[in-house]
């Protein structure tokens, strides 16, 4: 198992290097950094001096190495727009995004598994039909539409929940959380639901399909033939066998929830990394975009690593011989 983790780590480093290359190319070649820093009346000679000082005349390879070296230390340069270090900017926005992502992933996971199991066990009932039909809506409606609809119903018409922002936040060291105040909790409900709806229906359909598959297997029949209770069979024997694909999808979805919270964050004016990215794109703030790219890649790599380790916890067949047997 250790060997596998090390192998995966090595692969992760490769992936990160590749993404760094893309980020670097973008950083270096999308527009001229000097042109965006200087005014119209700066002389060419002065520009050349700046170019030299910033190391832009060094060989590309050297520049890339320097970029990596800085990135490893968390240095992504200064934002063109806000004139602050990019790493600071991202760190200040990160807690909002992570709290939103985890809140919605929790909703999606609990709701998705529960509904998936329910619809698999109650095949053909009216409730199942209704849930399955509703889930189609969840899959096919775009996120922003759901967000706007929720704002209209719960914020505008009913006035129960706030329609934008994070509410009041509390500082815990550098982490600014909205989960400890009432207004913060009320604020997270709508965006979290909006963001979770797609994942929820996805997980639900996946769990249901897997459950139906597992319920047909011989070992479930054999478990029945031994007189085990329905509860032991459904939740002990069947559900655990559906978990491997569910973990995969949930992991990847958590990654995309963090990465693509952009739309939801925009709709709800959520002060997270996603909305930072959107505003940066609008003004071609390349350092922020490059750093965001690296950050998202990092999130995916870490989540994939965790997913791989979780497989081992769930499926004993993978544990033999450092995982070679399962491949």
């Amino acid at each position: 198992m250790l060997a596998l983790i090390i192998r995966r780590l090595a692969q992760s480093v490769l992936v990160m290097l590749f993404v760094a290359l893309i980020a670097f190319v973008m950083f270096r070649y999308v527009g001229d950094p000097i042109a965006s820093m200087v005014g119209v009346e700066t002389r060419i000679a002065e520009q050349e001096i700046m170019r030299d000082r910033l190391g832009l005349n060094d060989p590309v390879f050297m520049q890339f190495l320097r970029f990596i070296g800085n990135a490893v230390q968390g240095q992504f340069g200064i934002s063109y727009r806000l004139q602050q270090p990019v790493s600071e900017l991202i760190m200040s926005r990160l807690p909002a995004t992570i709290e939103l992502a985890f809140a919605s992933a929790t909703i999606a996971l609990i709701g998705g598994v529960a509904l998936g199991v329910f619809t698999a066990l109650r095949q053909g009932s009216f409730a199942t039909g209704a849930i399955m039909a509703a889930s189609l809506v969840g899959v096919s409606l775009p996120t922003f539409l759901i967000g706007i609809a929720l704002i209209y119903i719960f914020a505008v018409e009913l006035g129960w929940l706030p329609s934008f922002g994070r509410g009041q936040v509390v500082e815990l060291g550098w982490w600014r959380t909205g989960l400890l105040t009432e207004s913060g909790l009320r604020s997270i409900i709508l965006p979290a639901i909006t963001l979770s709806l797609f994942q929820l229906t996805l997980i639900m359909r996946l769990v249901r399909a897997e459950m139906l598959e597992v319920m047909r297997t011989e070992y479930i029949r054999f478990a029945r033939a031994r007189g085990l209770s329905d509860k032991a069979i459904n939740f002990g024997h069947a559900l655990r066998n559906t978990l491997v694909p569910v973990i995969t999808i949930t992991g990847l979805q958590l990654g995309s929830v963090i990465a693509f919270a952009i739309v939801t964050e925009t709709v709800f004016q959520w002060p997270g990394v996603g909305s930072l990215f959107i505003t940066s794109v609008q003004v071609v703030d390349v350092p922020v975009m490059a750093a965001y790219l690296m950050f998202i890649a990092f999130v995916f790599v870490v989540i994939n690593l965790i997913v791989d380790i979780l497989y081992f916890a769930v499926d004993p067949r993978l544990r033999v011989d450092g995982g070679a047997a399962g491949k």
Binding site: E218, Y219, F222, A225, D230, H237, N241, D315, R317
Partner: peptide, 28 residues
């Protein structure tokens, strides 16, 4: 069904054809 569960396993045991698929792979 609950009465049947006290018959299955307790009074009538069953052995299936394929031992490779009769056992739940995730449990000891």
């Amino acid at each position: 069904p609950s009465a049947m569960r006290t018959v299955r396993g307790r009074r009538i045991g069953m052995i299936f054809q394929d031992p490779l698929t009769s056992l739940n792979p995730l449990y000891r």
